[in-house]
């Protein structure tokens, strides 16, 4: 994992430096001395490898530097403020996606081919058949204006959290449903289920106690990357619902070519993703019936 982080850091660092247009390119045509003074302040006058080692040392110390565009803040500060917001939104969205997706997936797997299966899978597929800005726009129209249930936007109460979490979770709910369905069907064909069924256990017991834990494995491994995605990639939802999460920083850093911010975001994403994958591996121990817990 550390190796991955280092590789990603190094590649990103050099890629961003190689790209045309330095960070102060955006500002005005400055005179030689003035420009040099500013470059000196940001250590841009040093040779590239010196800059690299300095940056790496800072990162190891946990100092991510200053963004070039949001001038009053530090990258650490931006992440410190944005991450809890994104995490709360993302967790809720995933909780929603999990509960809906699992129910839909299990139902449709146990009643395969029935109208209920087709219906549920149709519903689930709609979640991934429309761009989420469309889903969000329609949801606002319905639940804010036609039936005034929720506030239009903002951040600071649970009430404001519901609609964005639903919209953010919708495509993931669909994914979870489809994965659950497939893996449930897979598990049904395995020997231990047939044994359990042969023992004369009730259908519900077979499904919930014997089939589900095994079928959950692919869902859990899907959750790893999905968590990283909802934490950082929720830009659309954040914009529409005016939520001060990380997604907008993430995308805007790329759009504005804010190198320090961008590097910070990339590294954050990589760390989160690696951690999540680690957690997924650990949770296999909890879920996989073949692994015994001490």
């Amino acid at each position: 994992m550390l190796l991955t982080l280092w590789v990603v850091f190094t590649t990103s660092f050099f890629l961003m430096r190689a790209v045309p247009g330095g960070p102060f390119d955006s500002d005005r045509k400055l005179d030689g001395e003035i420009k040099k003074n500013i470059e000196r302040r940001y250590h841009l006058d040093e040779p590239l490898e010196m800059q690299y080692w300095r940056e790496l040392r800072n990162y190891l110390r946990g100092d991510l530097g200053y963004p070039y565009k949001l001038q009053d803040h530090t990258v650490n500060g931006v992440i410190r403020e944005g991450l809890p917001v994104s995490a709360a939104l993302g967790l809720l969205a995933l909780a929603f996606a999990m509960s809906l997706g699992l129910v839909a997936g299990i139902t449709s797997a146990t009643r395969r081919g029935s109208p209920a299966d087709v219906m549920l899978m149709t519903l689930a597929t709609i979640g991934i058949a429309l761009p989420n800005f469309v889903v969000a726009g329609l949801a606002i129209l319905c639940f804010v204006f036609l039936i005034p249930l929720f506030p239009a936007a903002g951040w600071g109460s649970f009430h404001q959290l519901v609609l964005p979490a639903l919209c953010l979770g919708a495509p993931h709910a669909a994914d979870v449903a489809r994965i659950t369905r497939t893996s449930m069907l897979d598990v049904f064909s395995q020997d231990h289920i047939r044994t359990a069924r042969a023992k004369g256990l009730s259908r519900a017991r077979v499904i919930w106690c014997h089939a589900l834990p095994g079928a959950l494995l692919p869902v859990v491994s899907y959750l790893g990357p999905a968590t990283a995605y909802v934490l950082t990639g929720s830009l659309v939802i954040e914009q529409i619902f005016a939520i001060p999460g990380l997604g907008s920083h993430f995308v805007e850093a790329a759009l504005q070519r804010d190198y320090t911010m961008a590097l910070g975001c990339v590294m954050l994403y990589t760390v989160i993703l690696s951690t999540m994958n680690l957690l997924v591996d650990l949770s296999y121990a909890v879920l996989d019936p073949r692994v015994e817990l001490k």
Partner: peptide, 22 residues
């Protein structure tokens, strides 16, 4: 492939498109 997986690709695409859009 694992290393590439841990790079946020949305970011990469936007970054590239911005650069190439100059």
């Amino acid at each position: 492939v694992d290393v590439l997986y841990s790079v946020p690709f949305i970011f990469v695409v936007i970054f590239l498109l911005t650069i190439l859009g100059q």
